[in-house]
């Protein structure tokens, strides 16, 4: 099971711009490296990340082999109403990680 960490402000005022940070534990193997015996190490990366806020997608990113291990993605959104943010990472070899966070908007 992959380790993911998200930090979302637990409370925000309506209309505020809130910063959201996500960290996913993943080796992000590029697929360009070789072992000492010259064999290619197969690619194993996260290819997609998305965040939905009460079911509406507010942020999406496509990741490529140049991204370092344990990718940290930070973005902002506008706090409109109380609800759930759902984060989803997916990638090679069937990698999927989902995390949820609650935010109360006053």
């Amino acid at each position: 099971m992959a380790r993911v960490v998200v930090s979302v402000p637990p409370r925000a005022r309506r209309g505020d711009v809130v910063e959201i940070r996500t960290l996913a534990g993943h080796p992000m193997e590029t697929g360009f490296r070789r072992t000492q015996l010259g064999e290619l190490v197969p690619r194993d990366i996260i290819t997609r990340f998305s965040c939905s806020y009460n079911g509406v997608e507010v942020f999406r990113a496509e990741l490529h082999p140049a991204v370092a291990a344990n990718p940290l993605i930070s973005f902002t959104t506008v706090a409109t109403e109380s609800g759930t943010l759902e984060f989803r990472w997916s990638g090679d070899n069937g990698f999927v990680a989902v995390q949820k966070a609650e935010m109360v908007v006053v």
Binding site: R3, V5, S7, R21, L23, G25, N70, L72, S74
Partner: peptide, 13 residues
């Protein structure tokens, strides 16, 4: 900042 420090992944383990 624990929200940014990638070592948090190891701390949780």
């Amino acid at each position: 900042d624990d929200g940014f420090n990638p070592a948090v992944l190891w701390l949780l383990d």
